[in-house]
């Protein structure tokens, strides 16, 4: 996997993405988001799990960049309207990946779905759907 050609630089300019450790990669299916292993993201020390807020934020960040990927890298940042996160399994202290699809892109609103996993994409740790204003 290599850095995402068009969006990587734009992501690297976001201080929050740098703080938690989000990178944008590219594989044969297109954009792939990575939340790197980072002790500062831990929210449950007993089982060593990533903070649920960081997972939610990562899904939201991934959703907005999947939308930007559709809109074109020159588009202005989509504005989040709402986000609904389902937590499916504990996200342990290891690399976490996310991929999304733009379910519907209207004139003003887009609906995006994302899912996150660690070792096995068939065993997601969380999924989310979000609405963004794109006008």
């Amino acid at each position: 996997m290599k850095p995402h050609k068009r969006l990587c630089a734009r992501n690297d300019e976001v201080p929050y993405a740098q703080m938690v450790g989000i990178e944008l990669l590219e594989d044969d299916q297109g954009l792939l988001c990575l939340l790197k292993e980072n002790y500062d993201n831990i929210g449950n020390e007993i089982i060593g799990a990533i903070h649920g807020g960081v997972i939610g934020g990562f899904l939201e960040h991934a959703a907005s960049f999947h939308l930007l990927d559709e809109l074109g890298a020159e588009a202005s940042p989509p504005k989040i309207v709402n986000l609904s996160i389902d937590y499916l399994r504990p996200a342990l202290h290891k690399p976490t990946y996310a991929r999304g699809i733009v379910v519907k892109q209207g004139k003003r609103i887009a609906n995006v779905r994302v899912h996150a996993w660690q070792e096995d994409e068939n065993r997601p740790v969380a999924c989310a759907h979000a609405h963004f204003l794109i006008a």
Binding site: E13, V14, P15, Y16, A17, Q18, M19, V20, G43, H51, G52, G53, V54, G56, G57, F58, E60, H61, P77, I80, L83, I85
Partner: peptide
């Protein structure tokens, strides 16, 4: 904190920060 910024141009916090705050 400057590290929370999601939109540098407009100096806005990333919405992930409020997600983390309310999740906690």
């Amino acid at each position: 904190n400057p590290a929370f910024i999601g939109n540098v141009e407009k100096n806005l916090m990333h919405s992930a920060i409020v997600t983390t705050l309310l999740d906690t």
